[in-house]
Each structure stands twice: as C-alpha cells, then as structure tokens.
Design a protein around this nucleic acid. Structure first.
Lengths: 99, 99
DNA sequence: GCGCAATGTAACCTATTACGTTACAGGTGT
DNA sequence: ACACCTGTAACGTAATAGGTTACATTGCGC
C-alpha cells in the first residue's frame, strides 16, 4: 500500500470506480469511450485527468467534472512542490498567506 | 465589454492584478518571471493557466494556486460544453445528478 | 510631428502531453 | 493448452506551454 500525499487520481479511479463495480480496465475503457491504453496510463499515474476525461468520468461514475479536475490539480501542485520554492517571483502583495 | 460565462482567467488577472496595481504587462511578466509573450497570451485568452503559472500568480498576487487552477478548470469545462453532449459514455451509476 | 514605451502578435524553436493503433510479454483461471 | 486481462513499447497525430526575435500599432510626452 503505497501512500503518497496526495495519491494520483488514477488510484482513486481504480479503487472507487473499477474495483467497487467489479469492472475490468478493458471494460471500463470501452465504457467511457477511450482505449485501454489511455485509461491504463491514468490508472498507473502516467497521464493526468484531462478536462474531457473528467467529463467522461463524471458521466460514467458520478460526481462532477470539477471534482475530478480538482483531484488532478492537487496532484499536479504536489508534484511541483520542490520546483515551487525555486520560482523567483516578485511579491506584489504583502498581507496574505501562501500555499 | 465582452461578457461570456465564465470569463477566461486572463481577464481576471488583468483587472484584479494588473489594473488594480497599475502594473504594465511588461513589468508584471518580468515580476512573475515569464516573458511578456507568455503573460500576454494568457491575458488575451490564447493560453491557459498552467500549474506552474498558478504558483507564480499566487506568489505574486495572493490567493492560492488552487484558486487560479479552478478558474482555469471552469473555463476549460465551459469550452467543452458542446462537445460534452456528444460524448458517448456508459453510465455505471444511476442515482446521481450530473453537470 | 517626432521619438519612445507598451502592447499584441507573427514566425520560428523545443518539450510535454493526450490520444490513437498495433503488437508483444507476463500473469491468471479454466 | 487456451482464453483473457493487463501493462507497456513503438509508432503516429494534435494541442499546449514555454522560449527568442522581430514587426506593426497605439498612445503619450515633448
């Protein structure tokens, strides 16, 4: 059980959508209208959830497209956490807490 | 005053960040550490807010990276609204409201 | 009017990503 | 052995983010 903070959306999709419904990757891919390769890449963290994929996921498995994209955002920002410190950006504001 | 629902994040950046602080595009681009071309493309809706750009915006102008990405998500999904209807996706759930 | 700064953007480059097809190797269950 | 599922490599396309350089337009100070 690898735990990394946060998990990529693929792990969630596999657990909450495929496993929960006893769906194979092959069947789920056909169901949402993409190739098995495309879905597999997301499930294993080799691709992100695109806006169109978020729409497909919400249609197939519920929740909102926004919800799936937010999971992707959180993961993308987590991946950038080290690079974030190196960004040299001028602060035009003073009175605010930053992430 | 073009109003389209929702505005692209560039409009918000221009109004709430540049105009409010009396910042030129050239200066703001230098401030956040990108080229004038890159910032201009976002301001005029020719490019989206990437995760790294969201980090720069939050550092420079406040709010959270998540906030800037959510604006981008909303715009991306709005652009897909017509394509969304044509997506043929199997519904594995029944009891839910979809966006 | 003349110069100059700011702006948008075109032309070109690179790297990355999403998506596709086809094909292969490894596992598992019957 | 055979059928099936899975991951993934190798190849393609299209789109996107970022860069550099250069150009035309606009607006402002003088």
């Amino acid at each position: 059980m690898t735990m990394h903070n946060p998990p990529h959306p693929g792990e969630i999709i596999r657990e909450l959508c495929l496993d929960a419904l006893n769906l194979s990757v092959t069947d789920a891919a056909a169901g949402i209208g993409v190739t098995r390769k495309t879905l597999s890449a997301i499930l294993n963290g080799h691709a992100g959830v695109s806006p169109e994929m978020a729409l497909r996921l919400s249609k197939a498995f519920g929740s909102t497209p926004d919800h799936w994209l937010r999971m992707q955002n959180a993961f993308d920002l987590w991946k950038l956490r080290s690079k974030a410190k190196t960004l040299r950006v001028k602060r035009y504001i003073t009175n605010e807490t930053h992430a």
